[in-house]
Amino acid sequence: MDTIISLFTDPATYRLITIVILSIFLGIEVISRVPSVLHTPLMSGANAIHGVVIIGAIIVMGQAPDNDYLALTLGFLAVILGTLNVVGGFVVTDRMLEMFSKKKKK
């Protein structure tokens, strides 16, 4: 019960919860009318955006003590995987969309 009450009394947590709720509505609103042609690129673009998890990986890596090899190894791997998600995601999306713009010009 105390934990639940603290969700509302602790300003930091309360702020986070507000962000979550508003973001949910925003996400629904932003893409509710998208033509089916764009489903694939949109999914791929969204895929790149959740690569933002890499920020957590960078923090983990940057805080790992020099002698904690487990944290260093896992953190290193996490940053690589996160980068793959971000870079790969944006590049693949751009490649898909490049073809759309090409045909627009013709």
């Binding site: 962000i19 973001s23 949910i24 996400g27 629904i28 969204a46 895929n47 955006i49 959740h50």
Partner: peptide
């Protein structure tokens, strides 16, 4: 970023 993708996805 995460929640946006979560709900939009």
């Amino acid at each position: 970023g995460g929640i946006l993708v979560g709900s939009a996805g």
